[in-house]
Design a binder for these strands. Structure first.
Lengths: 114, 114
DNA sequence: TCAGATATTTCTGTTGCGGATATATCTGTT
DNA sequence: AACAGATATATCCGCAACAGAAATATCTGA
C-alpha cells in the first residue's frame, strides 16, 4: 500500500471535469470536452491544450488509461482506473462537505437537497 | 456592467478555501490557513506561499479587500467584497450541480456525512 | 526575559493551464 | 468522387498559479 495507491485531493477543475465525464463511461477526448461544458459536467470550458495535457498527466499518474479500442480512426478512448474512481469519490465527498457547510452558512439559495 | 463585475468560475481549490473561510467573517491569513485544513473548510493544506500569493491575486481581482483594522500588530484582516460573495455563490452552485450529478450516477455513498 | 507559537513577507523552482496552430479523418451533399 | 465543414487529436509555448523554504517580527505564557 504505497502512496500512489492513495487518492490525492483536492483536484483542479479540469481534472475533476474529466474524471466526472469518464465516470459516465469510456469516452474520447472531444466528447469529454463537450461534456465538461454542460452544467451537469461542471460548466468547465477547456480548449484542446488543457484537455489533452491534463489527460496525459492523468495517465502518467495512473488515474486514467487508454482502452485501446476505437470505432473511429481519429478517436482515442479513455477509461477510469480503480485509483481514478477512488480519487473522484474522495473529491466528491470533500466537495459535498464544503457545499453542506456553505448551506449552513446560508450562502446557497434554498434549493439543493436532492 | 463590465466584465470584472461578473463572477468568474471555476475556482481553484486554494481560492475556494479562502473565500469560504472569509464567508464566515473577516479573518487574517493565518486563521484562513487553519480554517482551510478542516473538513468543513475543504480539507485544503496551504503553506504560506500559496496563501499569501493567492490573497494578493484575490485583492488584485477585487474579490477581497483589507479591512485596515487589527487587534494585533502582526495580523492583517481581510473581507469579502460584493464580487467576492457573488463569485463564491456562483462556484458553490456549480459544485452543487456536480455533486448532485455524481449522486445520480451513484458515485457517492448514500447520504453524505456531516 | 526567554522560549516557543503566531503571523507575515519574500523568493524561487516547478507545474499546469490556456490559446494558437497544424494536421488528419469523418460525414453529408451534389 | 470530390468538396466543404465538422470532428478529433497533437504539439508548442508563454504565462499564471502553486508549493516550499527561509527570514523576520510580534505576541504569549512560564
Amino acid at each position: 500500500m504505497v502512496n500512489s495507491d492513495m487518492p490525492k485531493t483536492p483536484l483542479t477543475p479540469p481534472v475533476l471535469a474529466i474524471l466526472l465525464s469518464l465516470a459516465g463511461g469510456d469516452k474520447h477526448g472531444y466528447a469529454m470536452m463537450k461534456d465538461a461544458r454542460t452544467p451537469e459536467g461542471g460548466a468547465v470550458t477547456m480548449g484542446p491544450g488543457t484537455l489533452y495535457g491534463t489527460l496525459d498527466r492523468l495517465m502518467r499518474d495512473g488515474l486514467v488509461k487508454e482502452t485501446g479500442t476505437t470505432d473511429d480512426e481519429r478517436r482515442r478512448y479513455y477509461r477510469l482506473t480503480a485509483l481514478g474512481r477512488a480519487t473522484l469519490a474522495a473529491e466528491l465527498e470533500r466537495l459535498e462537505g464544503a457545499v453542506k457547510q456553505a448551506r449552513v452558512m446560508g450562502l446557497l439559495p434554498k434549493r439543493g437537497r436532492a
